[in-house]
């Protein structure tokens, strides 16, 4: 039983959701530390000292060569063994928005992690625009992701321009989807704007074979308090914000391991 769950919130130049991600882990009972890529590459920080790796949203390296691309290459080419070992020994990973893009482009998702170019990607929204709006998410039955245990439905904001999941048909069938974009009746939907980007299979979140690596485009760390919900002035929203459950799940799973 782990008493102190250490969380590395990893940031690169241009990452900008690191503080709120660390805050979410903190109120979920974890002990987060915001760590710069340079510290990890330089060796002053190592993943083996942590239980959870969090990859926050933002625009790593400006997303200059595609969302998450440069950070993904950096991790794939310089940190691959450390990452693979971290997953092998039971480490948990969450990637949100840009963090999802990074995990996809390193090949850690859909996994298993291999050091080759991936067959799945996140690309430009069908709308052709960056958009910020709240979406509804429905979980896929029996997805076995430790991060989403007990969560059937969730609301959270998206804020991205490249969130459309695209995969070759051969790969699509072995993706482990965790959340679908859903309509007002919580049914999976391809309709814009409930599905904000036109993701194939309406997929909003993925996990890997272990169920411990999890990534999503929406931002649950922006819904850890009721008054972050857009409807709080109209109806009663329960405290804490429903997004917090994800971080509590992660911390609990790390504690059990």
């Amino acid at each position: 039983m782990v008493t102190e769950v250490r969380v590395m919130v990893l940031r690169a130049p241009g990452t900008n959701c690191d503080r709120e991600l660390a805050h979410a882990f903190e109120i979920a009972g974890g002990k987060p530390r915001i760590t710069h890529m340079n510290e990890l590459i330089g060796g002053s920080q190592t993943l083996s000292d942590y239980h959870i790796l969090g990859l926050p949203g933002g625009f790593s390296y400006g997303d200059d060569l595609g969302a998450g691309k440069v950070q993904a290459n950096e991790m794939r080419l310089r940190l691959f063994e450390q990452l693979a070992a971290f997953i092998d020994r039971g480490g948990l990973i969450i990637g949100i928005c840009n963090g999802f893009q990074v995990l996809i482009k390193t090949g850690i998702l859909p996994g298993p992690a291999r050091q080759e170019l991936p067959h799945v990607t996140l690309t430009n929204n069908d709308s052709g625009r960056f958009e910020c709006r709240w979406v509804k998410l429905s979980s896929t039955p029996g997805n076995r992701c430790v991060w989403t245990e007990g969560i059937e439905q969730l609301e959270a904001p998206v804020a991205h321009g490249e969130g459309k999941l695209v995969a070759a048909p051969s790969t699509l069938c072995r993706l482990r989807a965790v959340f679908y974009y859903a309509d007002n009746n919580w049914r999976p939907t391809a309709e814009y704007p409930a599905n904000p980007n036109g993701s194939v299979g309406n997929i909003a979140a993925l996990t890997d074979d272990t169920g411990r690596v999890f990534a999503l485009m929406p931002h649950p760390e922006r819904f850890v308090r009721a008054s972050q919900h857009p409807g709080w002035t109209r109806r009663n929203i329960e405290e804490p914000g429903a997004g917090l459950r994800i971080f509590q799940n992660g911390v609990d799973a790390a504690r059990r391991s």
């Binding site: 900008n16 959701c17 503080r19 709120e20 805050h23 979410a24 949203g57 625009r129 960056f130 958009e131 910020c132 709006r133 904001p157 804020a159 931002h219 760390e221 922006r222 850890v224 972050q228």
Partner: peptide, 10 residues
């Protein structure tokens, strides 16, 4: 408005 991130920083 929608093309600005108005939620970042939480």
């Amino acid at each position: 408005i929608r093309q600005y991130d108005h939620e970042v920083q939480g």
